[in-house]
């Protein structure tokens, strides 16, 4: 019984190291192909539009409502200690440092990570990836590098827009529901605005963009076993990207705001 347990633990550990190693090699290969020609401009442009433009409504809505709810909750909490004035500051910090990047990351992981895993997975099981190789086109350059590069570039843009909308959400609730003075609210927000808050959020966004696209591509690229395999790849891509986003969010916060 004890040996069985040790056996199982060993197997799990070995599997973990194997998967981490494979992902590491995949990531390194992807980075290499991002910077070494030939580049496929059209494929890259398509991904920029797919990730950046088409994710905009989802990210905009989630960050707007996140900003609104933070304003509401901060008020109910802070009013008890007569610190309602801090609402604008809390909204600003919460949105730019945490909410916009994490919400946008999770939303894009659901939208883009899943789509990438499903698309590449289907290409794998229908031999389209093999066909690319026989047409002397490196799948890392044609399929993966454009997706990862577009993810790293577009996520900060999305989060920047999310920052603005999140703060707007806070303003709407602050001014129209909680009846703060509009000018004071805006002045406070502007006064407390620190470049570091924005920069840290955008850096997180770029890292999350890398995680989402890498997990989507990795799971799709190595999917096997027909329709079921593609389904599994899609689930794994979204779940692993979401978990990694939350883990890296904590690590990056530690690094940026070492308290």
């Amino acid at each position: 019984m004890r040996f069985q347990f040790i056996n199982m633990m060993g197997r799990v550990l070995l599997h973990f190291f194997q998967a981490t190693g494979a992902l590491g090699i995949f990531g390194a290969k992807t980075l290499y192909h991002c910077f070494v020609p030939p580049f496929y401009g059209k494929a890259f442009l398509r991904q920029l539009i797919e990730i950046g433009f088409y994710s905009l409504p989802v990210v905009a809505l989630t960050t707007l409502f996140a900003g609104m709810v933070i304003a509401l909750q901060t008020y109910t909490g802070f009013a008890q200690i007569s610190a309602e004035g801090a609402v604008s500051l809390v909204v600003l910090i919460a949105v730019t440092r945490e909410l916009a990047p994490v919400m946008a990351g999770l939303m894009v992981a659901g939208r883009i990570g899943a789509a990438m895993a499903a698309e590449l997975g289907t290409m794998r099981v229908t031999e389209q990836i093999d066909a690319l190789v026989t047409l002397s086109t490196n799948p890392f350059k044609y399929l993966i590098a454009p997706r990862v590069l577009a993810g790293v570039l577009m996520m900060p843009v999305l989060v920047f827009i999310g920052d603005i909308l999140g703060v707007c959400g806070g303003y709407l609730i602050g001014v129209y529901k909680l009846e703060f003075n509009a000018t004071t609210y805006l002045m406070n927000t502007w006064e407390y605005l620190k470049p570091m808050d924005i920069v840290s959020g955008l850096t997180k966004a770029a890292v999350f963009g890398f995680i989402i696209t890498l997990m989507g591509c990795y799971n799709g690229f190595y999917s096997k076993g027909g329709a079921q395999g593609v389904g599994r790849a899609t689930t794994n891509a979204v779940v692993s990207a979401s978990i990694l986003i939350l883990i890296f969010n904590y690590i990056l916060t530690e690094l940026f705001f070492n308290v």
């Binding site: 229908t126 031999e127 389209q128 093999d130 066909a131 190789v133 026989t134 047409l135 002397s136």
Partner: peptide, 14 residues
Amino acid sequence: RAQIGMLFQSGALF
């Protein structure tokens, strides 16, 4: 590979 052509079983068209 540039000198090689391949016809896949299912076509494998993009």
